[in-house]
Design a protein around this nucleic acid. Structure first.
Lengths: 201, 201
DNA sequence: CCAAGGATCTAATCACTGCTTAGAAGGAAT
DNA sequence: ATTCCTTCTAAGCAGTGATTAGATCCTTGG
């Protein structure tokens, strides 16, 4: 399991820790991730990680930021083409998709000690970015509307998408069919309902 | 701080632990709640709590169940009178209200190790109950609609309400005005948008 | 070229945690 | 009053986050 430690000074311990950490979280979630076992996983003493991360929280934060970067990139791709409605539906689907593919990572990003009682400052940047990604298409579709209304619509839309992704992630949704095709269809319908409600003139 | 320990056998240690635990969580959140400090808070040895709770998780579960009971009661009150639309708006407002009043408790109930990777069986009962509370008014308002459509509408509605409550709880929402009156107004608008979308014929 | 100095790592340690055990203290019933 | 069960204490184990002193390696200025 250890990634060979033939040298005293290692090539890229920080990167190795992040990769191993991400793999661990994908499998077991962040709750049980300990700095010690992570160090052991990459074949290094228990104190070594502290030269690359101030504390456990900083490590988790770095992992979360990785996830945010990934999701931000995907969002940029999703809004490349299409009309506002298509963009928004695509964005919503993609977020739910991410939540389904990487549930434990999403938990770290949105529902961990990193966001309790308030989000870590480092995360706020990405949240603003995501917010802007939603506002733009809505503003375009609701040209002429008061800024307050647009804000409320975006709020409702983002709440729906995030809420649905979060609930599905932790299997807190009723009547979820086993077949994935069906699940995608349900997701599409929920997202569509939310988008159309947001864009209603 | 200790609640007098003049007797060896205490009147109701379990209840005292739950009360102290709830107070602690309201102030500091569940992450940092340790069995030891809680025992110390109520003036008892560090092993005593384990005679009333199998482990720390069981204690947290009991606290979460308290919260669920409270919220379920409130929901029952909210749906006592009114037409479907009014009921749903009232339900939504109440949930957000609970999230705002007891953010740390809500976190324990919905976004803790108790719901990761799947909700504890003990919580599912309350979730089913909550789901049914929403389905009834929607079904009444959408009489004649296919069950599948009703299900999707409820899903979207619950996602919005939960998502909004969750995001507001952890201050992950943009443009939140300081004045509480204004906040309530925003909440009402978001909930109304979601309810009307769900009940659209 | 090499000696100084900085960066990276190990080993050892501390305080704290969840949880278990052995046994003491108290209550209740025969 | 004796017995049995519940409730509690005291002590301890293993695992955790984090710090420290010192070893090892790399870089760089002279």
């Amino acid at each position: 399991m250890a990634i060979q430690a033939k040298t005293y000074h290692r090539e890229d311990l920080r990167g190795d820790l992040l990769r191993a950490g991400r793999a661990y979280i994908a499998e077991h979630g962040h709750h049980s991730l300990s700095v010690r076992t992570l160090a052991q996983l990459v074949g290094v003493s228990s104190g070594a990680p502290y030269h690359h991360f101030k504390d456990r929280r900083a490590l988790l934060l770095a992992l979360a930021l990785d996830g945010y970067a990934e999701i931000t990139q995907a969002a940029a791709d999703a809004t490349a083409t299409g009309n506002p409605r298509e963009k928004l539906i695509c964005l919503g689907m993609q977020f739910v998709d991410f939540a389904t593919r990487s549930p434990q990572l999403l938990e770290l990003m949105y529902e961990s000690e990193l966001t309790s009682p308030a989000p870590d400052p480092a995360l706020v940047v990405f949240q603003d970015l995501g917010h802007e990604t939603l506002v733009a298409p809505v503003r375009e579709a609701l040209a002429g509307f008061a800024e307050e209304i647009i804000e409320v619509r975006v709020l409702a839309l983002w709440s729906t998408v995030y809420g649905f992704a979060s609930l599905r992630r932790k299997h807190m949704i009723q009547k979820v069919e086993p077949r994935d095709l069906r699940r995608d269809e349900v997701t599409r319908q929920v997202v569509t309902v939310a988008v159309d409600a947001a864009l209603q003139r």
